[in-house]
Each structure stands twice: as structure tokens, then as C-alpha cells.
Simulated scan of single mutants.
Amino acid sequence: MPAGSALAAESISFDRVLQDLAAVRAVDVPFTETRHIAILTKPLILHGTLIYRRPDFLEKKVTAPIHQRFTLNGDQVTLVDAQGEKRTISLDMAPEVSSIVGAYRALLRGDRKALEFNYWTKFSAQNNHWELQLEPKARKLSQVIKSVVIDGVSARITRITTEQANGDRSVMRLQAPAGQGG
């Protein structure tokens, strides 16, 4: 076996994933989100783009079957619905949203302490493929979100699965940004 092959076969660590994610300055990623909602007879499938800019800008643009935009910029959350109606709130006014947003921010900043302060975490990896399971510690948040499972390869998130306490579930698959494979 050539020198370095044993190293290549080792699984990536949680700290390394966090370090790699923290190094990402900006990304625009096409996504497909499948929402399994109890009151619907079939899943709702959304298409769009996720945009991230360090340190704290995150935008989810839904382009099909409806147009909708969810923007997080600093501590302001703005939703533009399919009719073009715009609503902006401060994260201070929505503690549950703030906690969920905080998890994504902590992950993208590589802040393990913040993640583990608010969530029970379980990390597993095989080579460069990894999975992070988050379960809220706060009772109030756990009444809304049962778990979030984030899958990735190296410094790229490939899937986010969110299970709500009521049984509804969302699976967002993120495509590789332009110029990156697989």
C-alpha cells in the first residue's frame, strides 16, 4: 500500500468537517426539497437555490412550483411569499426560529460549542461522507422540531432532513455547486 493510503481511508472527524465548513466563504447551491406533510395526499416538491455568504447571510429561493424567498440577514428574517407580499421579523421576536437558524449558523461557522449547547449531537463518518444528527435540548423547541439530520461530503452539505414533532418531514437535497462534482 502506498504511503498516505492508510490516511486516505480514515474517516473524516466532526472537528475537521466543522473546520472545512467554516472555511467556506460563499456558495450558491440548487436544491430539491420534498416535504411530507400529513394533510397532503402526496409530497410537495420544491425547487430552488440556497445562497450563503459569510458571516450570516442565508437565503432560500423557491422557484417551483411557486416563487417564494426566505432571507436571513443578520438578525432579520424576511419572507416574500408567492404573491410578492413581504414580511420581516427580528429573530428576537421568534425564539424557535432563532434556535433553528442558530444551529445552521453554528454549523456553517464551525462552532461546535454552540451546536452542542443547544442540541444533542451525534456524528458519524465513513471516509469523507458524514452525517450529523441534531436533537433540540430545549423542551419548547423539541415540541416543534424532533430532529435535523445533515449529510455531507467533506466541506459540502448534500442533504438536510428535518423531522417535525408532529411527524411532518422535509428532505432537502443540495446539488454540487457549479464546478464541483458529485
Rank of each mutant, 00 (worst) to 15 (best):
S11L: 13
S11R: 00
I12W: 05
S13K: 10
F14H: 00
R16S: 15
R16T: 08
R16M: 04
L18M: 01
L18F: 08
Q19T: 03
Q19N: 14
L21E: 01
A23V: 08
A23W: 01
A23K: 09
A23I: 11
V24L: 14
V24M: 06
V24G: 10
R25E: 15
V27C: 05
V27L: 06
V27S: 09
D28A: 08
D28F: 14
V29R: 11
P30H: 15
P30G: 13
P30E: 13
P30I: 07
F31P: 01
T32N: 02
T32G: 01
E33R: 14
E33A: 13
T34N: 05
R35G: 06
R35I: 02
R35Y: 10
I37F: 13
I39S: 15
L40Q: 02
T41Y: 09
K42W: 14
K42D: 06
P43Y: 08
I45V: 14
I45G: 09
H47F: 07
G48E: 02
G48Y: 08
T49K: 15
L50Q: 05
L50T: 06
I51A: 15
Y52T: 03
Y52Q: 12
R53F: 02
R53Q: 10
P55F: 08
P55G: 10
D56N: 05
D56F: 03
D56P: 07
D56T: 03
D56I: 04
F57K: 07
L58K: 05
L58V: 12
L58Q: 01
E59Q: 03
E59C: 13
E59N: 06
K60L: 15
K61P: 11
V62S: 04
V62T: 05
T63M: 09
T63Y: 14
A64D: 08
A64V: 00
A64L: 03
I66K: 15
I66Q: 04
I66S: 04
I66C: 08
H67F: 07
H67T: 05
H67Y: 11
